[in-house]
């Protein structure tokens, strides 16, 4: 089995067990408020840790700030997502600007 299949299978198993965890316990243990709060930070931290290098150093080293089309595209996407909460609007406007700057 190749690497991608092993990764998909093991990740799927972990995900299933996470979803099954408390359902299996039938409500005999509930997570504390502190743990719930800590878990809220997880998606924000992971996603931001992925976004930053994708925008600023897509080739491995930080690109010159003024010739990197990903930066204005990301800024526009942030503004649209913040102001209108529109997922598709943010993606579409970001891609449009990205292509425009690449021309």
């Amino acid at each position: 089995m190749s690497r991608e299949w092993i990764a998909i299978t093991v990740a799927a198993l972990f995900t299933f067990l996470t979803r099954f965890s408390f359902i299996a316990l039938s409500g005999r243990w509930t997570p504390s408020k502190r743990l719930c709060r800590a878990l809220q930070f997880v998606p924000v931290a992971v996603l931001c840790a992925i976004i930053a290098p994708e925008v600023l150093s897509p080739t491995g080293s930080i690109l010159p700030l003024f010739s990197n089309p990903r930066i204005p595209a990301a800024i526009v996407a942030i503004l649209i997502a913040w102001k209108w909460r529109s997922t598709l609007g943010a993606i579409a406007a970001g891609m449009a600007l990205f292509w425009l700057f690449k021309l």
Binding site: A11, T18, R19, S21, F22, L25, G27, P31
Partner: peptide, 21 residues
């Protein structure tokens, strides 16, 4: 890969706790 997916999906444990009853 496995750890990242695991932490990203940890929030599902909260859903699991919430629907368990």
């Amino acid at each position: 890969m496995v750890m990242t997916v695991f932490v990203v999906n940890l929030r599902h444990a909260l859903y699991s706790a919430s629907v368990a009853p």
